[in-house]
């Protein structure tokens, strides 16, 4: 069951007068939104963007296979970046919670750096400067590494929030049982923190996935790049970009839903304890 949201608490069951007013407004709103939709469709129609030649190749299997291949590259880059970011984020979180002030200070600086700099700047850094330093990276790493760096700081903070959410008594109990600091963290605190962290890790994946759309900067053949090829071969820009945008939106929507669901599950088990 969903927790009752504010939407349900804002009003009481409406009386007959209010019901009538709501009905009137519903009709007006429907007309207004319908008119908006009509304007959009009319604009498409007038500019000839509804012609079948712009849309019929979406019925062909080869189109989808091609977009699918691009999507696969996108997912590969996003997942690799996410895995690296989770590793780096974990290290940064350990650094920020470290007793040594130097380690702590360096970790905080790195976290603030990755959170304050746009991914695009990092991508240009890997594109323009890293090759000149004598490091030759393939297109895959030129998009994956900046996306990973960019996400690592936020992930470090997510880990830290998760660790802080574990009740203090857990650490105290483990320490008083004679566990070392390391074992307390890895065997008692962290396994419980993971439960709080997983939902935010999934929503980080959305951010990484969005960042990989800049892959065209380094000419990595992701979904966007393959879309560009389709556009040239079918001379149909509007329809292809719209379809690609919808693909991205649906994937990210699904990931966000998954994250919400896991967050609710985690909250429930936490409350049951």
């Amino acid at each position: 069951m969903n927790a009752p949201s504010i939407r349900d608490r804002l009003y009481e069951p409406p009386g007959p007068k209010t019901r009538r007013r709501i009905a009137v407004f519903t009709v007006i709103a429907l007309l207004g939104l319908g008119f908006l939709l009509y304007l959009v469709v009319r604009q498409f129609e007038r500019q000839g963007q509804l012609q079948p030649r712009y849309w019929d190749f979406f019925l062909k299997w080869s189109t989808w296979r091609y977009l699918g291949a691009g999507l696969l590259s996108t997912l590969k880059a996003a997942l690799t970046a996410a895995v690296i970011a989770i590793g780096a984020g974990f290290l940064l979180m350990r650094g920020k919670l470290n007793k040594n002030p130097v380690v702590r200070w360096v970790s905080v600086a790195l976290i603030e750096f990755t959170r304050g700099v746009p991914t695009l700047l990092l991508i240009y850094f890997f594109f323009l400067v890293v090759p000149r330093m004598g490091v030759s990276l393939g297109a895959f790493w030129r998009i994956t590494l900046p996306c990973a760096i960019s996400a690592s700081g936020i992930i470090a903070e997510a880990f830290r929030a998760g660790v802080n959410a574990v009740p203090r008594g857990q650490t105290e109990a483990a320490l008083s049982l004679g566990l070392s600091n390391l074992r307390t963290f890895y065997q008692v605190v962290f396994p419980q923190a993971i439960r709080f962290v997983i939902p935010s890790l999934i929503s980080e994946l959305v951010i990484v996935l969005k960042d990989t759309t800049f892959a065209y900067v380094v000419s990595y053949a992701d979904l966007m790049q393959n879309a560009k090829v389709l556009i040239t071969s079918h001379d149909s820009l509007v329809s292809v970009y719209l379809v690609v945008a919808v693909i991205y939106i649906l994937i990210n929507y699904g990931l966000n839903k998954l994250s919400d669901r896991m967050a609710r599950g985690g909250a429930r088990t936490a409350a049951e304890r």
């Binding site: 007038r46 963007q49 960042d211 970009y241 939106i249 649906l250 990210n252």
Partner: peptide, 23 residues
């Protein structure tokens, strides 16, 4: 849901390249 989930690059490309085709 649309604007929360659309990548910035995709959004910009639609605004820059697709909208002019719709005049």
């Amino acid at each position: 849901q649309v604007f929360r989930n659309i990548p910035g690059a995709a959004m910009l490309i639609i605004l820059v390249y697709a909208l002019p085709r719709l005049k």
